[in-house]
Write a protein that binds this DNA or RNA. Structure first.
Lengths: 349, 349
DNA sequence: TCCGGGCTCTATAACGTTATACGGATCGCC
DNA sequence: GGCGATCCGTATAACGTTATAGAGCCCGGA
């Protein structure tokens, strides 16, 4: 069907191997021949058949990024970075959606896609340390995010304890005392939110504020709807919170929605902080204060580690902690800037 | 490295071809042999080498979905649907980010990825009809979205004229007269917004409202920031709009942000409608009225058409128009429901 | 004159799979 | 009992690439 090496070889009057060498630059080729081959390649519009190449080489040039939710902007933004980095290194990045399901994550871990991808970047949320340790597949693996630690694989994640400590400390510094946490995991402690809760507790302890379990609202997942429900619950408490740290920006936005809907003023009555710095939070009403991880660095590092392993790097697993910083916006602002800037003329009513 | 057909054949004491037939079910195999082979497969944990299979079959089982922005929730939600459908049909969907760049779109069109994907679903935004017509690659192609029409390829998109007509008519029905359009393309008419503007004009004409060019704000792209800038501009007009139809939900959300920031009440002073029905609009403040295309149907149809073509379907190109419907929320609500539902006790200040 | 040794280039054997053509049973039927 | 038809399997040739071994050739040195 397509143009193959053989066609080029024929046209240029050389052998298959020579064409291959011109295309790959694996072995030197004489200048005259090189040019003749190159011309044939251009004329016929040859592109290598990757299946064949990969069959021969044993590698496919594809890597997968498995994330719990395609529709979570945090992961979309992260994937964006990762795709660019992968392309720069000559790899194509495939996105896999685990839907935060245990089965999906395990399947990927054990290499269902073996032979189609050279390596996997996984953000585990439904599986724990033991499952990762039990994995049999030898395909290179890099973990990202706060799901699983202490396993013999490269790992890239911000310091989640420090991140939530920073966010909580910010609320404390604003004079808030009843600080709630929205988006705790529903039960076991294998999950990520654990670390974020730890940071939250640490910051409270430093400030001398007693930890109040009633202010911790757990959620099934970490989407907008979950944050909204949790916040609604918190508003029913006898003495509701005056601030909220959310597990991530999405739950924070859900919380904002619940607050607005209930007529609670943000930040006047309740201040809100999220984690992730998704673009949505820069345009929400009010805009969202958040902890911004260096997504670019996370995406790049994860891809780089993986590619290094694929290309044979040995050595002990590395654990990278990209930087993060607090971004102050209206949801914790000293004063919301919602007052009209200037008079608008011409409205009805 | 991995377990291959040969290993299975050896262990089960049969030929390669028989193992292949068991695995594929291409030709019937006797029950006894079948079981023996199956057992060997299970014991050794065999998974077919896809590169080899694809080399032989001439197909890879990979299809690509090329979208202008990974981080646009509309496309993320669409991709989510498409991935599921593709998986159900035995294909793996690869996401490509064109970044709305002409070069990227052309490269994909001309089959840079030839040999790695069997077909392409493309949402063109930077290229026009001529470029699509000029394409040489023979790989199956399905177009989605409102970018390019009248080309000999399968196409899936809602009726954009009708969608924006519906949205505009809704604003008219609410008694609005100065209805602005946010998110017109920056100049030429090759682009999609053209159709949406046409629907907008049609609805105005039906209502007997004169078209006012000053109320059409063009933007470079169609993100939140673009909507915000455009809206800010509209607010400087001598007689500003009392309603806004935005090109999509993202620009609508940008507009909401600009309005809130300027102290303009939504929907009291200005009503806002978007198109896309992204989840974000269900949680924004105020929540966003929008035209909801049947994303599930768009994703499914596009994948199905593509797979049909890959598997040899001939016949004239089809043009599918999935359904859409208007979703009324607070941003056009007769009365915003932001009043407190019940008294919240316990706030400071 | 002959030989070792760079250079270029070629011939060919894999890589793991599937499709085709064929071989040998077994069966039904005259 | 002979004959075609029907099963069930097998042997083998691709698919397009790359790595390996080696073939010519030219050159400098003995």
């Amino acid at each position: 069907m397509g143009v193959s090496l053989k066609d080029i070889a024929q046209r240029a009057g050389v052998s298959l191997a020579t064409v291959s060498n011109v295309v790959n630059g694996y072995r030197p080729v004489g200048e005259r021949t090189r040019q003749r081959v190159q011309q044939a390649v251009d004329e016929l519009g040859y592109t290598p058949n990757l299946s064949a190449r990969h069959l021969r080489r044993g590698r496919t040039g594809l890597i997968a990024l498995a994330i719990p939710e395609l529709t979570n902007p945090y992961f979309a933004e992260l994937a964006d970075m990762a795709i660019r980095e992968a392309a720069g290194l000559g790899y194509t990045l495939l996105m896999e959606n685990t839907a935060a399901e245990r089965g999906e994550e395990l399947t990927l871990l054990d290499g269902a896609q073996r032979h189609i991808i050279d390596g996997l970047i996984l953000s585990p949320v439904a599986i724990g340390r033991e499952e990762v340790l039990a994995r049999r597949a030898r395909m290179p693996l890099v973990l990202i995010g706060e799901g699983v630690y202490d396993v013999p694989y490269d790992h890239v994640a911000i310091d989640n304890v420090a991140a939530s400590r920073t966010a909580t400390a910010h609320l404390v510094a604003l004079g808030r005392r009843r600080i709630a946490f929205v988006g705790a995991p529903p039960g076991d402690d294998r999950q990520s939110a654990h670390l974020r809760i730890r940071g939250y507790r640490e910051a409270l302890a430093v400030a001398g504020i007693p930890f109040d379990l009633r202010l911790v609202a757990s959620t099934e997942q970490f989407g907008r709807a979950d944050g909204e429900h949790a916040m609604r619950h918190l508003l029913t408490l006898d003495s509701p919170p005056d601030a909220v740290l959310a597990y991530n920006d999405l739950t924070a936005i859900g919380a904002l929605r619940a607050l607005t809907r209930a007529g609670v003023r943000v930040p006047d009555d309740v201040a809100v902080v999220g984690i992730d710095d998704i673009e949505e939070g820069r345009f929400s009403n009010p805009t969202l204060t958040t902890v911004a991880p260096d997504k670019r660095e996370i995406g790049r590092s994860a891809v780089r580690r993986l590619v290094a392993r694929i290309e044979g790097e040995q050595g002990p697993p590395t654990h990278l902690q990209p930087a993060f910083h607090l971004v102050e916006r209206e949801s914790t602002g000293p004063r919301p800037s919602v007052a009209p800037r200037r008079r608008i003329r011409g409205y009805r009513g």
